[in-house]
Design a protein around this nucleic acid. Structure first.
Lengths: 224, 224
DNA sequence: AGGAGGTTTAGGCGCTCGCCCAAATCAGGG
DNA sequence: CCCTGATTTGGGCGAGCGCCTAAACCTCCT
């Protein structure tokens, strides 16, 4: 068997097991058994269990990058670009369900944050410059980081909490219909935001946002 | 030392370690050392490592329940109720940062989903009846599950990805100012949704939501 | 004072983990 | 053909895991 073939089989099994059980609960013996490969080969080809995770993440982010860039270039109109990217991202997560699990868990564990940050940074920069171009003067409550986090969270949560949503609602959140419904909802919310950010909200509408009842909102505004 | 005191010390250490390292990467010896008790006491008081996690979750959800119910009862007006609950939830997560980590990781691992679901169900039911009361005829793209998932996701993502956001933006996402900014953003988005759901959106506005460019939207509408 | 039951202790059992090693196997060039 | 280097194999080492046991220890009650 060619070495690349062995690597691919190991990575496939790793994807499945890390996604299902998690990094810690998966043993290299599990991976070896599932990929039909001797357990020493994992260390021969990848060095260590940590480096195996890195290789897995690289694969994910390379494919994600290609997918999102393709979606972004499909159109030149910002509104449509946003919709296309959201759809592409949701589709990608639906097709790579373990991706979410792996990332979410490693972020929560705090141990592989640097590995995630290094690979997320390009996407964040891309999103930032894109947003700043189409909305140079967004109001503070629609700041760049806030909007990016919200859109990211709305998309990702559906997949991370898929199994929980399934048990809560009694319906399959990963069926084509459910996925389309989710995409439509997120696009709808983003459309609302977009209208405020890009088209510029009417100031009177913007002013009467909820004021919290029991706490004063600090006036301090951080520089830059 | 009184038994309850021992239990409390064990739970404190468990909270810190499960939140920081995760369930798998934390050993009962770690917990014993950090809480200053003999390692056999953990099994004496809690039975097993899994039951220790359950006890920890029970503590979280009991306190969360009290917090949210108090926030909900602070007012009778739906808009203000929503804002209060969001603020209370965000505050709770800020004060119990490990809660997010533990839940998120266990959900992602898929092994303790039932434990989470059982404790989440009451909140979901409460949110459902509340939403159905104030918005009996929400349009499909603002369906109950969709809205709940989005609001939940927007709040939780900030804390789950806190360390990532910190590295991406260079600012502390858990500072009082940053937390208030986040709360204000989420309340703002929810206000937009609320206006559409509750006040009833103008149909023409609702109609011109983005249509995705490359995919037809299935017409099928699931019953009930 | 002395017994009883709840709590704490040191020690360790049986097992699995990531990783390593020396030998076997394979493929291709001289 | 055989030599060479890359790849694969079975076996196992040392460490650490969750959990258990038997004895010691406390704290009341009678």
């Amino acid at each position: 068997m060619r070495p690349e073939e062995t690597r691919a089989k190991i990575l496939d099994a790793t994807d499945h097991l890390f996604g299902g059980l998690g990094f810690d609960a998966t043993t290299t013996r599990d991976i070896a058994e599932r990929s039909g490969v001797n357990k020493a080969l994992i260390h021969y080809h990848f060095g260590s269990k940590d480096e195996l995770l890195s290789a897995l993440l690289d694969g994910y982010y390379d494919r994600l990058s290609a997918t999102l860039i393709e979606a972004l270039q499909r159109s030149a109109e910002p509104e449509r670009q946003a919709g296309d990217v959201i759809d592409a991202y949701a589709d990608f997560l639906a097709r790579n369900r373990t991706f979410c699990s792996v990332v979410q868990r490693e972020v929560a564990s705090g141990r592989h944050v640097e590995a995630i940050v290094a690979r997320t940074l390009p996407f964040f920069r891309l999103g930032s410059t894109w947003l700043r171009e189409i909305a140079p003067h967004a109001p503070p409550e629609l700041e760049l980081t806030q909007v990016l986090t919200s859109v990211y969270g709305m998309v990702v949560t559906w997949f991370t909490y898929g199994r929980v949503i399934e048990r809560l609602t009694g319906e399959d959140p990963f069926s084509p219909e459910a996925l389309e419904a989710r995409r439509r909802h997120v696009r709808h919310v983003v459309a609302l935001l977009f209208r405020e950010i890009h088209g510029g909200a009417t100031p009177k509408e913007r002013g009467k946002t909820w004021q919290r009842s029991t706490r004063r909102t600090p006036r301090k505004k951080s520089g830059s």
